[in-house]
Structure formats: structure tokens, C-alpha cells
């Protein structure tokens, strides 16, 4: 990119020579001008040259999330006087930073940027507006997890391509896994609860029936000590996988990944 092509170098030498010749008084030093210019060293070759400009990657499969940076009130509209939908803390019940999925942005009634986020509250699917300043930096994910309640299988895609498909167990009748669009809130591991297998993902989905469950009945995606029940309809709403499958998922699925249950 920045290497001088030979014609350019010659042209430069010629300009230098012309300048030397025209500015002087015609003495011997001026007659040496062209030769002196030609003897000038060539430009130093750069150690590297950037390639062409890098266009933006296609953003079709990008989802964004951010952690709640300070306690905030989610409202029904981007307006400080709009109705309160929920109050957001900076930590999840599991003690990890509290993420929210970003749905939209808009300048609010106060002239400041507001962000519409998915909320981990009942009824499932709730959203609310929070001031941009309540959130941390945006994070982007290109993964998405689809949980098929009818076929009892979960499919992870990255940039629209399937990277993992595994059988799952879902909620038993009366403890149905709630359908809807949610997101992964955290990833727990190295705990001592064999029933949850080696890894458990928390999601923003809430069981509408297990509301008196500890922490309020959040739906998780986790391993199991009863692999013989997978696939099946046996859980209290959580999505269970065989331990080898949850380990594979843990390697591929980052926090913030949208979870579509249908």
C-alpha cells in the first residue's frame, strides 16, 4: 500500500532535481544537483502494510446484551415518568452480574439514549426501557439455542449454522417448560449438586407454576444424574441434557445467547 512505486520515486527525484536546478545561481553545486538527488537513498521499506479496508461483517445473526451496571428501573416507555415495569439489580440470584438482552434503542423523552431490554420476570416475554447509563458495554453473540418442545431436542446455531443438536428432557405435564424467546444469564459449574450435572446455564425464562421455587423458579439448562430420562417430559420446567451434551454446549454457547423455546 505504501511502497513507493518506481515511477513515483523517479518523479520525486526529478522534482528534487528541478528544484535544485531552478533555485540556485548556476554554480558547480547546482550542476551536481540531479546526480546528488539520484544518489539519495530509497525510502525505507515499511515492515508491514495494511491490506484493504475491512468491511463490516454481516450482522444478521448478531444479538446484543449488557450487564446492569447500576440498579435501575425498567419502564414501559423511554421516559423517566413512564410506568414502572420492574426494578433491576446488578446481580442475579446466583451472584453473577445481571445481564439483559438488548432489543431496541431510542432517544428518550429526556433527550438521552434509552435501551429496551428483555426482562427476567413474569409474565415471560416482558420488556422494559432503561437509561443507557444503567448498562455496561454491549456484548455481541452470534449463537442461538432453539429448544423444540415437540421433538425434544435442542439445536445450537452459530451465524445461522447448526453446530450442535442434542436430545433434551423438558417439563412434565403441569410443570411445562414455558415457550418464548429468552436469553442465557449465567453459567454455573463446580457446584455439588449431581442432579444438575457438571454445568448449568441460567436463563431469563420463568416457570409460571414453580413460582415458590428458590429464587423464583428460573428455568435452567443443565446436565443430569438421570440420563435414562433424556429425552422425555420429566422436569419441573428445566431443560435437561446428558452430561456429555451439556459439556459440549458449555464449550460452544456464551452467556447472552438467545434461547428460543417453541
Amino acid at each position: 500500500m505504501r511502497r513507493w512505486p518506481v515511477p513515483a520515486a523517479l518523479a520525486t527525484a526529478a522534482v528534487v532535481a528541478l528544484a535544485a536546478g531552478s533555485a540556485g545561481s548556476g554554480g558547480p553545486a547546482d550542476r551536481d544537483g540531479p546526480r546528488a538527488a539520484a544518489a539519495l537513498p530509497a525510502p525505507v521499506t515499511p515492515a508491514f502494510t495494511p491490506g484493504p479496508p475491512v468491511a463490516l461483517a454481516a450482522g444478521r445473526h448478531v444479538s446484543r446484551w449488557a450487564v446492569v451496571r447500576r440498579p435501575a428501573t425498567a419502564r414501559s416507555a423511554p421516559d423517566p415518568s413512564a410506568a414502572v415495569v420492574a426494578r433491576l439489580g446488578v446481580r442475579t440470584p446466583e451472584g453473577t452480574p445481571n445481564p439483559v438482552a438488548v432489543v431496541a434503542r431510542r432517544t428518550g423523552a429526556d433527550g438521552r439514549p434509552w435501551v429496551r431490554v428483555r426482562l427476567a420476570i413474569l409474565p415471560n416475554g416482558s420488556t422494559g426501557w432503561v437509561p443507557r447509563t444503567a448498562l455496561g458495554g454491549y456484548n455481541a453473540v452470534r449463537t442461538q439455542l432453539h429448544v423444540d418442545l415437540r421433538r425434544l431436542r435442542a439445536t445450537l446455531t452459530r451465524s445461522g449454522r447448526t453446530v450442535l443438536r442434542v436430545p433434551v428432557a423438558v417439563g412434565a405435564p403441569g410443570w411445562d417448560t414455558p415457550p418464548g424467546t429468552f436469553y442465557v444469564r449465567n453459567r454455573l459449574s463446580r457446584y455439588r449438586s449431581p442432579a444438575y450435572g457438571p454445568v448449568a446455564f441460567g436463563t431469563s425464562a420463568r416457570s409460571p407454576t414453580a413460582t415458590d421455587w428458590p429464587a423464583g423458579g428460573f428455568v435452567g439448562i443443565h446436565g443430569t444424574d438421570r440420563p435414562d430420562l433424556v429425552p422425555g417430559r420429566v422436569s419441573h420446567g428445566c431443560i435437561r441434557m446428558r452430561n456429555a451434551d451439556i459439556r459440549a454446549l458449555a464449550r460452544l454457547m456464551p452467556v447472552g445467547t438467545p434461547v428460543v423455546i417453541a
Partner: peptide, 17 residues
């Protein structure tokens, strides 16, 4: 420039199971 949030934990899962 901020620290990347640590979204993992070791708490016992309180999920519906």
C-alpha cells in the same frame, strides 16, 4: 476499556430442575 464481566459462578443452581 473495562474488565470483561465474569458471567460464571459456583453457586448451587437454584433452577427448577
Amino acid at each position: 476499556v473495562v474488565e470483561r464481566p465474569r458471567m460464571g459462578g459456583r453457586a448451587a443452581p437454584p433452577f427448577t430442575g
